[in-house]
């Protein structure tokens, strides 16, 4: 599989998968999709990139260690859950801010932040697992 063609195409595929994963994440509340599926797609993208170009390359491209991304995901998902504390509502209450931007109705909500957290965790952790397995010789 480790051919030149694959190595050339892989970054493109990976980027495409990442974009698609974000799309799946965002539409999840109304159509099939959501943080899990999006995250799995995104992580697969990174895994493909890793198989093609090596783990070191992916690590360079990601800047941070993927597990840190996962930590960030858990962190903001929980914080999203903590926000209702300020409006005297229970943990994980969905708070919605709906406003109009150039005629489009934009909905910003804690469930969305939560779902982004889910996405980050899945991308981060699954990428960690995949990358670790792809190159376990690397000294972490």
């Amino acid at each position: 599989m480790n051919t030149v063609i694959f190595r050339t195409v892989a970054p493109g595929i990976a980027a495409l998968m990442l974009v698609f994963s974000i799309f799946v994440l965002l539409r999840g509340h109304n159509e099939p999709g959501g943080g899990f599926i999006g995250g799995l797609i995104g992580a697969s993208g990174l895994a493909v990139y890793g198989i093609a170009c090596g783990v070191a390359e992916v690590r360079r491209a990601m800047v941070i260690h993927p597990i840190v991304l996962a930590g960030f995901g858990v962190f903001i998902a929980t914080l999203a859950g903590l926000m209702p504390l300020f409006v005297d509502a229970p943990f994980l209450t969905g708070l919605w801010w709906i406003f109009e931007l150039e005629g489009q109705e934009i909905a910003l909500s804690t469930p969305l932040i939560f779902d982004i957290g889910v996405y980050a965790v899945v991308v981060g952790a699954v990428a960690t697992i995949a990358l670790t397995l792809e190159n376990d010789e690397e000294h972490y």
């Binding site: 597990i67 930590g71 960030f72 995901g73 858990v74 998902a77 914080l79």
Partner: peptide, 10 residues
């Protein structure tokens, strides 16, 4: 929250 934070600060 703590676990997430500590992972970020690994």
């Amino acid at each position: 929250v703590g676990a997430g934070l500590l992972v970020m600060l690994r």
